[in-house]
Design a binder for these strands. Structure first.
Lengths: 252, 252
DNA sequence: CGCTATATTGACCAGAGTCAAGCTTTGTGG
DNA sequence: CCACAAAGCTTGACTCTGGTCAATATAGCG
């Protein structure tokens, strides 16, 4: 069963990912006076490793830190009044999470680790101290939060206007952007379950299965259990939204 | 047809709303050294009035200002690749908009005025200047943005997990919170169309009509064209989510 | 006062959900 | 290293909620 991690027992950190590809790199570099912020810097006080099923934070936890996913993947979700959950994001290399707790100083969401994951921790009070002396640190943070707001709006569009096929295609496209290796067909490891994908996209796991199967039949992707291979990105892109000629009625 | 407003031609501002009830009040007061920030202060350089159908900003406009709705209502929306639109919010008294443009320095969304509306304008560069000298100004802003992120997440839950009845009930509850007058039954003027409500909630206007009609039949609300009267708030609250006993299967 | 946009209501339909059964992968303990 | 259990995935049959299309009705605007 999932349990809270023991931060003191973290094994030695493996540096899977360059700092300069991290969403927090701008912050880290500013905090370190423009020096290369790799490995150790003024902003990040701690790094640690979590394993699948462990929580990074739980709903109601008091907020002291924000986190960057250095390598791995984490899902975040919120609870409705009736106990239903909505996954609000899957967060991979370089992404920053915990920003939604800043108002109210308690986490409204939970973050659970999907695979062995390496996390950078930034003390928020420490961040505030630093930003008094470093102009631009706060603006960087505002930009990051603004970006998070934008992603939320894109998600509303997906959930409010797109059908199941478009949702899956859009989701797969967003995965494909995270791919580094340029081998063709490029591949991605789905660390989340079909049920998680469905929850995130406002669909059931059955619908996710069926549509992935159809994409595979049509030669757009190839699936081998947890791995997905992107075969025809052009056709996948075409499926993310309706062709511009149909359905312009909904313009405001 | 909607047109961009002429800011120089603004008629004299009527002060409908107390500054201390505004979402930006914390910022304004901090910027004014703790003095009461009403009417004029160091942060807000300009106020103006827009009329129904006018744009506050358009997609692609370069970002210089953020705005607070002093009195009135504004809808914001984004475009999908195929031209479909998703309304991302209806913004009433005291709400702050324009925060999504901060990353990228261009507006991704549009804001269109639904009724004669009084807006406070804050120059973002000016805000940044001020915040260098006033600790806490930036943290206030971070808190406001964090709150916006939370609202986005709640919206994902609504769009991803709730059925049409729950969506409408949740929406009406959120309207009822904006009501000042305590007369019973309390009322709210719907400045947005049924189509707008549907667009926002991921429904069609027909579904919105039908469910509002059913709420009225059931004596939960009363509708007189643009006005809605809240008759039975308890039953409305009960409709916003499923009873806790059913459907706990979806817990993560 | 008439015209247009918006709202309402009904009949019908389809996309995605539900339920169920069987299959595959993963993890655990002997 | 294998056997078994549990969790996750897949597929099919059927259902139902909410969308679509269409025909009025009403309201708001000039």
């Amino acid at each position: 069963m999932p349990k809270r991690y023991d931060r003191t027992a973290s094994p030695p950190t493996l540096e899977f990912m360059m700092c300069k590809d991290c969403g927090m790199y701008g912050l880290c570099r500013l905090a370190s006076n423009g020096e290369d912020a790799n490995v150790s810097n003024a902003l990040v006080k701690r790094r640690f490793v979590l394993r699948r099923g462990e929580y990074l934070y739980r709903s109601g936890d008091s907020f002291h830190e924000i986190y960057a996913v250095r390598h791995g993947s984490i899902k975040t979700y919120i609870f409705g009044d009736d106990g239903r959950t909505q996954i609000t994001g899957f967060h991979g290399n370089g992404e920053i999470i915990g920003l939604d707790a800043l108002d109210g100083m308690h986490f409204a969401s939970e973050a659970i680790v999907l695979e062995t994951t390496n996390v950078c921790e930034v003390s928020f009070p420490h961040f505030q101290d630093l930003s008094r002396n470093i102009p631009g640190l706060q603006s960087q943070m505002l930009a990051i939060m603004s970006h998070t707001i934008l992603r939320g709006q894109q998600m509303m569009l997906l959930l409010g206007k797109k059908n199941a096929t478009e949702r899956l295609a859009t989701y797969l496209m967003s995965l494909s952007r995270h791919i580094k290796n340029k081998s063709s067909p490029s591949s991605y490891k789905l660390t989340m379950s079909r049920r998680d994908i469905g929850n995130y996209l406002g669909l059931t796991q059955e619908t996710v299965c069926r549509i992935l199967a159809r994409f595979q039949e049509d030669g757009i992707i190839k699936i081998e259990s947890k791995y997905i291979y992107f075969v025809d990105m052009d056709r996948l892109t075409a499926l993310t939204s309706q062709s511009r000629t149909e359905h312009i009625a909904d313009c405001i």
